[in-house]
Write a protein that binds this DNA or RNA. Sequence first.
DNA 1: GGTGCTTACTTCCCAAAAGAGAGCATCGGG
DNA 2: CCCGATGCTCTCTTTTGGGAAGTAAGCACC
Lengths: 138, 138
Amino acid sequence: MESVTQNGSDQGRPEPWPHSTPEVEALVREMIGRVADKWTLILLEVLEEHGTLRFTQIGAQVGDISQKMLTKTLRQMEFDGLLTRVVHPVIPPRVEYTLTPLGRSLSEAFCPVWLWAEANHAAVMQARARFTENAAHE
Amino acid sequence: MESVTQNGSDQGRPEPWPHSTPEVEALVREMIGRVADKWTLILLEVLEEHGTLRFTQIGAQVGDISQKMLTKTLRQMEFDGLLTRVVHPVIPPRVEYTLTPLGRSLSEAFCPVWLWAEANHAAVMQARARFTENAAHE
DNA sequence: GGTGCTTACTTCCCAAAAGAGAGCATCGGG
DNA sequence: CCCGATGCTCTCTTTTGGGAAGTAAGCACC
């Protein structure tokens, strides 16, 4: 009753993720904070799907991203080694963005999340409706 | 030349994710925007790891989250059906949070991302160092 | 020869959101 | 009669993000 009830109802799931050390976990947290970003995720998907794209092409694929956020997210991803930015010194300028193997591996790691979202958006909508209904009753 | 060059250099990768319709994709994008949040991800991990937790226990596990963001994120996740919030009407108050099956399935979907972060944080650090070095040369 | 067009940004301004920190409500114990 | 413990809630400050305008530079067109 005094501790956090690390209860036995943990039905046979020993430890889903093997965390090694606290310092690695802190590092991983920092990376998650960096990578768990809406635009980063969407840019990963768009580039994975289309290969090499130019600046305005990416913007057109995403649809509702401002140029400022597009530039910022692309630069951040380049800084983190997720994509390469190739500038062709021609007029008008031509800049091509391509995922690196690192970026492609991250994109693949996010694949289950996209599948989850596709499979469960109906469940989430139901949960929201139920929540709203319950809030109305109280 | 009129379409987006679904080029042949797509070395044998046919279509990673089967997108059905644009409307579903828009819905999925909305969910990704909701779920691809630093605190949501970390709370999912903490709750998956510890089972049922109280408000302050979650805050202690996360470490550097403000109570306001903790409340807000928890409410959002409850609204989306990712966790349940059980209030025991005692003094001092006791509120317990537990992942729903939906939340646990999302947590599992994010598992590869955590593994990616653990496996590749060194690569990201190297990429950052390389980027900084190249920027200094230019 | 001047004017405008194109692309990929960059900068400015302002609204919206995130985040920190203090306050609040409740009741049992001293 | 006041303190502490807990789970919020409110206020204030900092950061983020959108939209629009500006920039550079060669090329087509009148």
